[in-house]
Amino acid sequence: MAMLATNPSVKDIWRWLEEVPDPEIPVVSVVELGIVRDVARDGDVIVVTITPTYSGCPATAVIAIDIEQAIRRRGVDDVRIETILSPAWTTAWITEAACEKLKAYGIAPPEKGAACVGALRAGMSIDCPLCGSSNTECISQFGSTPCKAHYRCKDCLEPFDYFKSF
């Protein structure tokens, strides 16, 4: 049980949220993923603003509950979670440190500026997070969660997830 906070600052709240893991990829936090957009006080109420990654991602509801619980279990009862759509979530908000953690976890981090724009794509090389080879191929743009694509390494022959640029 965490210490009860009587009058936490916005900075304290941010620190607590940095410990809230993403439900699907627990090695990174919801803050590192850029899901938490703002923390503010509205009188006695703590207002946390979040944005969904993908509009149908089932983890979004779980994330809202996890955030609320992370704050409540420190003794703060008045919490409100607000959701905003714009600006739309982008993988550019994922921190460098989180990208390194993803890689160590076996997920290739998003390539910068490589988001799909709906045209026929040119071949894009994604390094294998396991052996580092760039000799890989895309099996499917849709992987185990909406945010990931499914790749295969042609050198170490292992399949891997790629956190697709978005």
Binding site: L85, A115, G118
Partner: peptide
């Protein structure tokens, strides 16, 4: 703005 990113894929 949100949807078009998904629909691109």
């Amino acid at each position: 703005e949100k949807s078009v990113k998904e629909v691109s894929y």
